Simulated assay, not measured.
Amino acid sequence: MTEKKVSLLEGFKAFLMRGNVIDLAVAVVIGAAFTQVVNSVVKGIINPVVGAFGTQDLDSYSSCIKGTCKVVNGEVQGIQILWGSVLGATLSFLITAAVVYFLMVLPMAKYLARKAARDAAKEGTKEVVELSELEVLKEIRDALVAQSRAGGAPGGATGGQPSDRP
């Protein structure tokens, strides 16, 4: 029974030590902190701009489906649709998505594209250098083969001295 607990603990430890779990935990914490920033922007900037055309509290925008919505003794009479709170949540989502995209995703994509281009350029120059060296070596080999067929060793038969014979 203790052996099973040890293996469960080892499995749990391996699960926690994975890189994705740590990354996910960091993302959740950052996301929670970022939610406060977005809520501040909505309350401090978006709501006053909307308030210029109506009320600053988006949650107060509503419509009634059946009859008129009346407040009687603190209760709303009728069927009320709170489309203002949906609008506020949608604006919060759009602001969050825009900030994440323009401040995080887009710059990271540009950085990764530049890095990939640099790496490809480095690989391209390596291949060009390797190919040119290989081509030069092939040409040297071909020249040596051609010289050996024409007159023996390179430089003639006298060991590098020009031959006096025609």
Rank of each mutant, 00 (worst) to 15 (best):
V86L: 13
K66Y: 05
G124R: 11
Q77T: 13
L82T: 11
V105A: 05
F53D: 03
K126W: 05
E123K: 08
N73F: 12
C64G: 02
Q56G: 15
Y61Q: 08
M104I: 15
L112P: 00
I95P: 06
V26C: 02
V128C: 07
V28P: 00
R118N: 00
A116N: 06
N47F: 09
A113L: 09
V72C: 09
C69W: 01
L91N: 02
V136E: 15
V29R: 02
S85K: 13
V136D: 15
N39V: 01
E135P: 08
V76F: 06
E133S: 12
A120W: 04
L106N: 08
L94P: 09
E133L: 14
K110F: 01
L131C: 00
L87T: 15
I65S: 08
V38P: 07
L137M: 11
Q77A: 03
V136P: 11
V128I: 12
A32I: 13
K138S: 10
P48R: 03
M108R: 03
I81Q: 10
V26A: 01
W83N: 03
V29A: 14
A89C: 07
V129Y: 01
L24Y: 14
I65F: 04
I81Y: 09
P48N: 07
F53V: 09
L103A: 13
V37D: 03
M104G: 07
S40A: 10
V136N: 13
V76K: 06
A109E: 10
L82W: 14
V26H: 01
I79N: 15
K138W: 05
K70A: 08
A120G: 00
T55S: 13
R114T: 08
Y111N: 02
K115W: 00
V28W: 02
V128E: 15
Y61P: 07
I65Q: 06
G78R: 04
K138N: 08
W83Y: 15
K70D: 14
V41N: 06
E123S: 14
T55I: 05
V50I: 14
A27K: 10
V37Q: 07
G31C: 02
L58F: 08
F102R: 05
I95R: 00
L82C: 13
N39F: 09
Y61F: 08
V105S: 02
R114V: 02
E75V: 09
V50L: 08
Y111V: 05
V128Q: 15
I46S: 08
I46R: 04
P48Q: 01
N39L: 11
L91P: 09
V41K: 02
A52H: 11
I30A: 11
R118A: 00
L91Q: 03
L103V: 11
Q56H: 04
G78L: 01
L112C: 03
V99N: 02
A32R: 12
E130H: 11
A33Q: 12
R118P: 02
G124Y: 13
Y61E: 07
Q36N: 13
